[in-house]
Nucleic acid binder design. Structure first.
Lengths: 142, 142
DNA sequence: TATAATGTAATATTAAATATTACAGTTTGG
DNA sequence: CCAAACTGTAATATTTAATATTACATTATA
């Protein structure tokens, strides 16, 4: 799995603490420790789904559009990483009953696993994540 | 996540269909489409946990030691891939409240997610996987 | 109209997964 | 007892996936 999912969570949490103004991809990337182009890529997905809006030009950036408790981690997972749990099996031997069928069997099992994971992730909205971040010791300096 | 987990499932399923004799890493690797050295590495983990035993030398190989319904996918996951769900966050900015705390918050959430996933994986034993493989259309040729 | 931003494609770099090679140790059968 | 067929494991090479970088078009603002 790539880390688009956690980057999306990080970005939305960042935006959640700046609800009154736009944040640039540069600012978010500095917080997350990744390249700003990546932030823009991930956020363009979230924008498509209406979680945030963006504005180009001077004073532009990204800003939350929904209520913090309207966006949960399962929503974000599906947008950024659906199917990522699926193992990338090498082509196995079609002449062996195991090789010929294991891929499909695993696909079915992992599909169920992802759904199950979803039930867990639905329990966390961005609001909860923000609360957890605030509860942690380190209050940062900026 | 690497595919040691699915390789382990594949290997054990292979062994489950050859309960009366030893299977070599070469035979398993042909079924799974990976290098035999990798099979030996993964199986050495399963051996440590008593799921299988091995024998060196002519006529040697690997063989199941437990009942098929004694080994479930959560057992196998923990042995081969525990912690693999955890995202590998880059070092984020300690001067930002989000950057400074997100890593710990995500760690906690993903720990719970993995536990939750475990509850799902416990429902599948190797016996069930074997049944599913047999139910699939393609019966192989070997 | 210069500047500061997003949007996105193309390419380069880095890191992770996997394969390969090499070889020591074990068991078996001739 | 020795050659052949295995496992066990470390070291290295290769491939693939993730990420970063560059480049530049587009949009907005002052």
């Amino acid at each position: 799995m790539n880390s688009d999912f956690t980057l999306a969570i990080h970005s939305l949490t960042f935006l959640a603490l700046q609800l009154d103004r736009m944040s640039t991809s540069d600012a978010i990337s500095e917080s997350a420790g990744v390249h700003p182009v990546r932030i823009r890529k991930v956020l363009s997905l979230l924008k498509k789904h209406g979680f945030i809006k963006s504005k180009e030009g001077t004073g532009g950036g990204f800003i939350f559009t929904l209520d913090l408790s309207e966006v949960n981690l399962w929503d974000i997972y599906r947008i950024t990483s659906e199917g990522a749990l699926q193992p990338k099996c090498p082509d196995s031997n079609e002449n062996c009953i195991v090789g010929a069928n294991m891929k499909r069997v695993l696909f079915t099992i992992f599909l169920g696993a992802e759904e199950h994971l979803g039930e867990f992730l639905k329990n966390y909205t961005i609001k909860e994540v923000v609360d957890l971040v605030n509860q942690e010791q380190n209050s940062g300096c900026d």
